[in-house]
């Protein structure tokens, strides 16, 4: 049976990136891959609808982390998309035959090994296929504790899922990696890109401004949408923030783990402080999620209300603004 260093991780994309690099002899943690790939983000885009609910995202666009990892100097990543399903599966088999583990973008709805409650039409799930036995593929799915197996035609369907973020059979693998990674510039670059997205983009729906925008909208949901729809919107925000694949607190805990790891690498105690502040921000997001869950469940405490949740989100915005301003200043001093 082929060997692949499967490590369970919280987020699929950073997990796949870390596992693929580790397989190439560059041991790297998931949090580090997430941070170097500039994975953190916030966006509230109500004009994009998912099942009729506004898009809220706490992470960079699907594929961003992998693109950043592929752009590291010395790393070569081959990425292919297909029109034809048979050609896509044949290409996958070819790569596996020469022992290359292949990353795939798939639609969760079609993967039979996924827990029933998580099978929604979400098309940006990443996994690594590292072997084939008979009609079954051996899969290292980063959110699972152990490698799993998937029948060939189910995997083919998952690779050609339709709808938003359709994978179109996307597959990728590393062909070349440097002997060792130069961590410092990559960390600084990753932090810089996240700070830019969170602080300086002149568009009110993303970054810290987007968080505040969400808070303003959220207060008015009960009046505008009625209680039932408002609760659905609220539940949707919490799902995007906390459901499997986020590491909790809308990726804030994962990013804090990255900052902590970077503090050791860079010998920069300031990053430790930023990690602690970001943990507080993540806790505040969770505080919001806990109130929201009570409201959705109809068990609201007397002081649980939409304005209280908006206040919570605004506190998150203030905390994150402070963290990323500090990080931006730090990154400027370390070009």
């Amino acid at each position: 049976m082929p060997d692949f260093p499967h490590t369970q991780s919280a987020h699929c994309e950073s997990g796949v990136a870390a596992n693929l690099l580790t397989h190439q002899g560059i041991p790297i943690s998931e949090a580090m891959a997430f941070g170097m790939g500039g994975g953190l983000f916030f966006g509230y885009l109500p004009f994009i609808r998912i099942n009729g609910l506004p898009l809220v995202t706490y992470r960079a666009a699907a594929g961003h982390i992998l693109r950043q990892i592929g752009a590291i100097s010395g790393v070569q990543m081959v990425e292919k998309r297909f029109r034809n399903q048979d050609a896509a599966m044949a290409e996958l088999d070819q790569a596996l035959a020469v022992g290359i583990p292949v990353g795939l973008q798939t639609g969760v709805f079609w993967l039979p090994y996924f827990p029933r409650a998580l099978r929604f039409h979400f098309n940006a799930h990443n996994l690594v296929v590292y072997g084939k036995e008979g009609d079954e593929y051996l899969i290292s799915d980063p959110v699972f504790p152990q490698p799993v197996r998937c029948p060939a035609n189910d995997l083919a369907r998952a690779r050609f899922a339709s709808g938003a973020l359709a994978p179109k059979g996307k597959m990728y693998y590393l062909t070349q990696t440097p002997a060792r990674l130069e961590y410092k510039p990559l960390i600084v670059k990753g932090i810089q890109s996240v700070c830019k997205m969170m602080l300086t983009v002149p568009f009110p729906l993303i970054g810290v401004k987007g968080i505040r925008f969400l808070a303003n909208r959220l207060v008015r949901w009960p009046q505008r949408l009625g209680q039932e729809r408002a609760d659905l919107h609220l539940g949707h925000v919490v799902r995007m923030q906390e459901e499997i694949g986020t590491g909790g607190g809308g990726f804030r805990f994962m990013y804090a783990a990255f900052l902590q790891e970077s503090a050791e690498v860079m010998q920069a105690p300031l990053l430790h402080d930023c990690a602690a502040s970001l943990t507080t921000a993540g806790d505040t997001w969770r505080e919001f999620a806990a109130i929201a869950a009570r409201v959705c469940k109809g068990r609201a405490h007397p002081d649980d209300s939409y304005p209280a949740m908006a206040a919570c989100i605004n506190r998150c915005a203030a905390l994150e603004e402070k963290v990323f301003t500090e990080l931006r200043q730090w990154a400027r001093q370390h070009p």
């Binding site: 369970q8 991780s9 919280a10 949090a31 959110v143 504790p145 539940g235 949707h236 919490v238 799902r239 906390e242 459901e243 499997i244 590491g247 909790g248 805990f253 994962m254 804090a256 783990a257 902590q260 790891e261 990690a275 602690a276 943990t279 969770r286 999620a289 806990a290 929201a292 869950a293 959705c296 469940k297």
Partner: peptide, 25 residues
């Protein structure tokens, strides 16, 4: 896997159940 802070304030990865509010939503 979830990211948790241990008593020393360091992050560590621990296998865990899903946080309860997630089940609710």
């Amino acid at each position: 896997i979830s990211y948790g802070v241990n008593s020393k304030g360091e992050y560590e990865l621990t296998p865990d159940d899903v946080w309860q509010p997630v089940n609710v939503v």
